[in-house]
């Protein structure tokens, strides 16, 4: 290894060390600092509510997805919804909510309980959609936080294709 390469390696290491020292130093000074390690999956799936909206677990959704009096809404984008979703779930992508909400509201007025979901604890769309619906007159809203990943893992049935869109033509 030439001297120049060694020097560059030493500089990389020095810059890295400065960053690490500042990172842990600032974290130690912060109140409360971020714990160095945390079980995020447990932390998120153990939540009983998100932003004041109650969370429902897998058995509840599995027992109610065929109930025509409950709206299960998939908050993910259409292409992803079409790859796989809970049978009968309505697709209402949170990322295009401004574009689709009027159509959705006329097709699915706020008369039934709502369960929103997305991929799982590692996604925010279900919680964001639930919050949006709550602010727009929908009552009895729940979030299925474990989402499609836990649904699939439990061997429950899924549906592919266009399904039910919460906008435009079904």
């Amino acid at each position: 290894m030439t001297l120049a390469v060694r020097r560059t390696c030493a500089q990389v290491a020095a810059l890295g060390m400065v960053a690490i020292l500042l990172a842990f130093g600032s974290n130690a000074l912060r109140n409360p600092g971020l714990p160095w390690m945390e079980d995020w999956t447990k932390k998120l799936t153990n939540l009983t509510s998100v932003g004041g909206i109650p969370v429902v677990d897998l058995p509840v959704v599995a027992g109610s997805y065929e109930d025509q009096n409950i709206m299960i809404i998939d908050a993910r984008d259409r292409e992803i919804y079409e790859q796989s979703h809970i049978p009968g779930a309505i697709n209402l992508p949170i990322h295009a909510i401004d574009q689709f909400f009027d159509q959705f509201q006329s097709q699915f007025p706020p008369v039934m309980p709502v369960i929103t979901y997305c991929d799982g604890a590692g996604c925010d769309q279900a919680a964001n959609l639930a919050e949006f619906l709550k602010n727009n007159g929908y009552g009895q809203i729940h979030i299925f936080l474990a989402g499609l990943s836990e649904w699939t893992k439990a061997g429950l049935p899924t549906e592919t294709g266009p399904g039910k869109r919460g906008y435009g033509q079904n």
Partner: peptide, 23 residues
């Protein structure tokens, strides 16, 4: 949310990475 790291590594990355970017 990216689901690439084990849970135990998430906070370490969240603590170090931004400072690495800043430095």
């Amino acid at each position: 949310n990216y689901r690439l790291l084990p849970d135990g590594a998430v906070n370490l990355v969240a603590i170090i990475l931004p400072w690495l970017e800043l430095v």
